[in-house]
Design a protein around this nucleic acid. Structure first.
Lengths: 247, 247
DNA sequence: ACCTGAACACCGTTCAAGT
DNA sequence: ACCTGAACACCGTTCAAGT
């Protein structure tokens, strides 16, 4: 519980790997504070204000309490962010255990991307921390059961998973950041895309490059994105299928 | 030039998309300051101290100048970081134009990963900014020429590139962060890996999951990483090859 | 044209004190 | 056991002033 806290957060550790029991809910306190309420408030604040704007003081204000009260429940801001990071992994829907490996991988990839896009602050945190909380591990676990059914030799399992989920991580990161940028500046995605393309087109050296980008032939940013994501997923599945015999 | 600066950095823009000419070197000033020297110093500081530790005051100290001097050459810290971000893209070696598409994509993927690992601060910045500086575009441009030779229908080009380079982005991000963590805490990668695995093994619910991770059968973290990366690349190439007829 | 110093409105966190 | 207030050592940036 909160009373015996880890002394300091050393550079290589994680809340989830401490020797203490995992951060638990506990019972309601006089001021209505409780670890899980604090984490929920953190997630809400991250969603509405973005990672850069979230501070311990701002969060405390949201909870109707002083900044230092939060430190009774949490050792450092990083620990709190790590808990918020794991928290949103609960949103990732896990495919039915009976699903075949292709369907399962596809569903997990879509769910992963969706979570990253709904919470653009997740990407930097997932890159910074180990991301070994219980919900993140349940997701990783399901992915591993999926790849075990692919027919790949077991030495290739982790490589294949890295391909799928590092791809969704990168794709979701860029997509989420792009959409957030448009949202906060009140510009439609298509208008912003047109603006960026127009400015790049003024540099003659990138003419050929822009032609490649435009070759998708879709009219909206959203349509191009779906096309790219779908094709990439098809490509991965086809690649795994082909590699089953290749090794 | 520095004298007529952009007024303020609006949420959706980038130094590279401003109406003004691209940030240029200019000539040496009395105090030895110059934009390119400032950017170089920023890169060095980011490499040695990490993104979190780099501040305008710290950078200025490194340059033997007060914090506010830097603001003569740069509008905001974000603009400066964007220039540092583009700067390191110069390290990415571009394959010979005669190389076939497979060799070219492989080389670009390896170079991209290498850059990300050498500069772990690049990942968060590449996620945050548009990354449309001249060096980043030259890299993107070469990748587009490579995929054009793959035989894929042109509507799939961007999807295939997204797959390759979002994967290398995610892979390089995790690898770089992991190595930095080990470096700053003075633990070997293998010792740290053993520690994390040991702690996860105490949770019985992840037994099957850990078995999957261990199936790679390599003895060092470095060897596992190379195996995963190689397999993922093979898989992408095989996938693209297979998709040429599929569409 | 270039650089400085003081100031403003913030941070995360420590520590002693309150109830 | 839980919460507060003051303080410390920082931030990015503005602004008026120096040379």
């Amino acid at each position: 519980m909160a009373s015996d806290r880890r002394s300091a957060r050393d550079a290589r550790s994680s809340v989830w790997l401490s020797d203490r029991p995992a951060p638990a809910a506990g019972k309601e306190q006089p001021h209505g504070l409780r670890l899980d309420k604090i984490v929920d408030a953190t997630v809400r604040l991250l969603d509405s204000e973005g990672l850069a704007k979230v501070s311990m003081r701002r969060l405390a204000a949201e909870l109707g309490v002083t900044a230092m009260s939060v430190y009774w429940y949490v050792d450092t801001k990083d620990d709190l962010l790590e808990m918020a990071l794991d928290q949103v992994h609960e949103e990732i829907g896990l495919p039915d255990e009976a699903a075949d490996w292709r369907a399962a991988l596809r569903e997990l990839a879509c769910e992963h991307r969706g979570m990253l896009v709904r919470h653009p602050w997740v990407s930097p945190l997932a890159g910074e921390f180990l991301n070994v909380g219980p919900r993140a591990l349940a997701f990783a676990d399901r992915a591993q059961r999926a790849i075990r059914g692919s027919g790949l030799p077991d030495g290739s399992w982790m490589g294949a998973l890295a391909l799928v989920f590092q791809f969704t991580y990168g794709f979701g990161t860029v997509e989420g950041r792009w959409r957030e940028r448009c949202r906060t500046s009140g510009v439609s995605e298509d208008a912003f895309y047109g603006e960026v393309m127009g400015r790049l087109a003024r540099r003659p050296e990138y003419a050929e490059s822009l032609a490649t980008v435009r070759a998708r032939g879709e009219r909206t940013v959203a349509a191009m994105r779906e096309r790219d994501f779908e094709f990439a997923l098809d490509c991965v599945i086809a690649g795994i299928t082909a590699m089953r015999e290749a090794v």
